[in-house]
Design a protein around this nucleic acid. Structure first.
Lengths: 244, 244
DNA sequence: CGTTGAGTTGATGGAACTCAAATAGCGTGG
DNA sequence: CCACGCTATTTGAGTTCCATCAACTCAACG
């Protein structure tokens, strides 16, 4: 139950095991509670592979499962205002999708694979049953759902009242920290998304994002070559992101 | 259990009853389930009054209760980046506070009364107990918590990639709709917050907010005099807010 | 009637957008 | 392996929008 056969052509961001997965703390109490039938197998765990550019689910769809990113990158889009969708969040390896749908059950976002991605799929009812048996698990749920709403708030403070270079610096540090916390090297990584997606996410234009990358490289804070990014001076980069 | 003695000097936005309160759908199943001890009285419901400018709770505080706004206006501030706090949300009459804290229990926002406000205070444990007894109530909880994260997302789409006049128009429509949905007249109302708070919320400067008000008034879409706002042409105002 | 604070209006500069052109990556097929 | 073509990205020049700073209005209040 650890690794899956890989069919990747290009270098894909690291594959993560269950320990680094956001659901681990939910699974764990369940597994402790009763070893046999609450194993991952018993929960009808599935793995799926989504090709880059393909839609996972749409706004309005009834979503009945959690999704955990194992590799790749999924973007969540809000279609309510702009025609081609505004990026709300990039879900990175080890992170979760669709949590906020499980109250209303129907999704308010469209999710699209930024690149070929591998996901774990866990039916909601399996977990919900787990929650009714263990208040510990139920509490963990509430915590996770509450935390899932935090991404939007973080993005809000990342872009509101901040100028372009601050946003881009903050974005890089954010991605770096999230990769690091999942056990992936955060100093040097590959951005799965293109400049347009980043610009859309940060409320900028791709040209501006590009200029900021160039400027940060000129200051020797980062190194960029297309999608590959290397963070050379993260304390200084943080200062830039905080306008300090 | 309906009205409280009023000590307001100036005209304060309408006081709302339990029916228009965001918690009603949570209370209701509980009340149905067992009439006697789960009444509002049984839940140790308290009413408090917060003077304008006073802090309700701070970031880092352990929050053990829900708060429901009965009258007035409470702003939620994020202190993580700016010195004097960035406005995340304005809680209007009939709306709730501190829901997202009840997973982590410790608040990540500071809440300050924009004007003298009256609140209902309900201890979390009373509800949590209610939830363990009724899965219906528990589900309603999850729904409410998931929805509480939506405010940040809405604000995000309100300001990202939108110019000043679009933000201001969207803000007015948003406030209008929220007042209306709580049974208050939404065509003509009084903004509790000053220009600085609005500007902070929208990621603008107070001068810009002022200019936008003036411009919208010039186009005969609204009428403004200090804090009093009248919406004259909401379809057209919507067009402006959507950049259409 | 002067003071105070919120709100409005005006003038100016800078940051980011726009449009346009140049360049770099990258997959494809010779 | 290299040339080709396509797309993504970078760079440049001009324009727009908003922040800034400052002056001004207005109402409340002693």
């Amino acid at each position: 139950m650890r690794d899956v056969a890989s069919t990747d052509r290009n270098a894909v961001p690291a594959r993560t095991g269950c320990e680094s997965c956001g659901l681990w703390r939910v699974c764990f109490p369940g597994l402790v509670a009763s070893a046999a039938e609450q194993r991952l197998n018993g929960m009808r765990l599935r793995r799926i592979r989504v090709p880059g550019g393909k839609t996972l689910y749409r706004s309005g769809d009834r979503v009945e499962s959690f999704y955990m990113i194992r590799s790749g990158c999924i973007k969540e889009l809000d279609d309510s205002h702009s025609r081609d969708g505004a990026v709300i969040n990039f879900a990175l390896p080890g992170e979760m999708l669709s949590l906020q749908c499980l109250g209303p059950a129907v999704s308010n976002t469209r999710t699209v694979a930024v690149e070929a991605s591998s996901l774990c799929v866990v039916p909601w009812d399996a977990f919900s049953e787990l929650g009714t048996r263990s208040p510990q698990v139920a509490a963990e749920f509430v915590r996770l759902i509450a935390r899932s709403g935090l991404a939007a708030r973080e993005l809000l403070t990342l872009i509101r009242d901040r100028e372009a270079i601050e946003r881009v610096s903050g974005f890089l540090l954010n991605v770096s920290a999230r990769l690091q916390s999942r056990g992936v090297r955060g100093r040097e990584f590959r951005l799965a998304m293109n400049r347009d997606d980043i610009a859309n996410y940060l409320g900028l234009r791709s040209e501006t994002v590009s200029r900021c990358f160039t400027e940060l490289a000129r200051r020797n804070l980062i190194r960029v070559r297309a999608k590959r990014v290397q963070i050379l001076n993260s304390p200084e980069l943080r200062k830039v992101s905080l306008n300090a």
